[in-house]
Design a binder for these strands. Sequence first.
DNA 1: GCGACAG
DNA 2: ATCTTGTCGC
Length: 226
Amino acid sequence: MKPTEAIKIQKEFREKLTLEFPAVNVKKIAGVDVSFKDNFSFAIVVILSFSTLEVLEVKFFKRKIDYPYIPGLLSFREGPVFLNAWEKIKMEPDIVFFDGQGIAHPRGFGLAAHMGLFIEKPTIGVAKSKLYGVYEEPPQESGKYTYLYTKNNQKIGAVVRTVANQNPIFVSPGHLMDIENAVEMTLKCVRNHRIPEPTRLAHIYSQKVKKGELKEFEKGDQIRLI
DNA sequence: GCGACAG
DNA sequence: ATCTTGTCGC
């Protein structure tokens, strides 16, 4: 697909986003990440308990890379392989965290927003750096944050300090989500690292998968002696 | 034209 | 993202 065509699709589908979080009781959440090696991409989906952050299920999918990295078009590179892995998940998470932007995007349609429409689930974008928007540096204390705005002063996300004196992360809602809930839920997933658990674990697992060091599993699979 | 630019 | 080991710092 040509970039101009992909951009047209983003402008068309952003209209379908719902930036409101349905009042659901969040029990299980998911973290997604994609890694690359040679000519292959490896997508990982990790299911966690929202209250304990315990890992309940891990599934992955490998396929050839068929799209280049183009700023603003990340979902066309990582989306397909993610959807392949998503189909393997047996549990049904209430929220899905992605390693990238939600609506904090040039056309308001980043990876988390795009995938949210596909899977019809509330999604949140958690990026390590900014793609689009203007903001003021948040205070150095953990848990503090400032907002991300478009050039027209429209609020599109938050710049969150998850760990004191460490670089902030960029949080923005995808689909079926709002900024306040996105920030609140993201902070609840932070343990002792800058990156919240869903995305952090997905990243660790995806690194192991491409090295052939990870086996998929789901709760109950654990083999134990005794 | 110049700078910015998720992963 | 990836190419890559040890090393400085909280």
